[in-house]
Design a binder for these strands. Structure first.
Ligand code: FES
Ligand code: FES
Lengths: 153, 153
DNA sequence: TTAATTGATACTAATATAGTATCAGTTATA
DNA sequence: TATAACTGATACTATATTAGTATCAATTAA
């Protein structure tokens, strides 16, 4: 079972590309080609991020997308929230007899504790942080540069 | 997004019932009724647990299921493994250009670290531990006792 | 003017999860 | 020893989620 879905995955990758070119707009096409993401699918993801004010767009020729904030302020946690409705360990597990009083239920506490641990971990991970690690990984080799493109459906 | 699926959920509940009556066999029917789990679905879950040697069964009248080991040795982690194929944060996220060399990829390390954190948390949770907390929650009120039953399809 | 772009939206496909149905075999017990 | 209460095995359907596609209108740089 995967904790991150494709949408979150693609969102992170797109954001990393945008983090790599803070000043200029990057088109969906370029991102789709560079990151090997289905074009229209990516567009949906980008629009969702616009709605959540993570990025802005510019229409027309030379248009594209741009971050609205510092990459360090974008947390993977938030992306999971947007694209997956958060991480919920489980719904109430012992409805019936066992947990007559939900509010006092110890199991529930246990489960919510883990939920919190997971969330905290993803809260630590920012686009900025990932981006710096990436740069390090690529040893100054600019893999995120925009390049000449090939049409995508 | 839910981390625990119904199968894992039901497995935990069934195991808690078995933990409550270590000596005698408990039938699928009783567990289904008591825990409000679809009968045939639960049976599938139970058979899966037999295959993994967590429980044994006895056929025929007065038959049912019984734990093979101490409840403290059964970890939720293992159930997740059995019923959900483990928790995988994501598959390799940056295949193409970005991560030419997977083995050195820092992002991958980050992701695997979180995967480990999640797994460690669930490894801490045992059926025995949950059972004791349950007993506490119910203040000696034996909610898990076997009772007269109603037919289930 | 036109080609490169996003906005909006409606659709299909693939996969995973959840649940149902059925029949054969075993066994306590009346 | 017949029968009802059980499990074993397996095949099936239904529902939800995730992933992906298609289309058309509006915008804009060149
Ligand atoms: S797990 Fe839901 S109230 Fe206890
Ligand atoms: S995330 Fe897969 S190699 Fe880096």
């Amino acid at each position: 079972m995967k904790v991150l879905t494709k949408k979150t995955d693609y969102a992170i990758r797109a954001l990393l590309m945008l983090a790599a070119s803070r000043e200029s707009y990057v088109s969906a096409k370029i991102m789709a080609v560079e990151q090997d993401i289905p074009y229209q699918f990516l567009r949906g993801v980008l629009q969702e991020m616009i709605r959540h004010n993570l990025i802005v767009s510019k229409e027309g020729v030379q248009g594209g997308f741009k971050l609205t904030m510092d990459p360090d302020e974008i947390r993977v946690n938030q992306l999971i929230e947007i694209f997956q409705g958060g991480v919920q360990v489980s719904e109430c597990m012992f409805r019936k007899q066992i947990c007559a009083n939900r509010s006092r239920c110890v199991l529930r506490h246990e489960i919510m504790r883990i939920e919190q641990v997971v969330q905290n971990e993803f809260e630590k991970v920012t686009i900025g942080g990932l981006f710096r690690k990436l740069e390090l990984a690529n040893q100054l080799k600019p893999a995120l540069s925009t390049s000449e493109s090939v049409p995508t459906t």
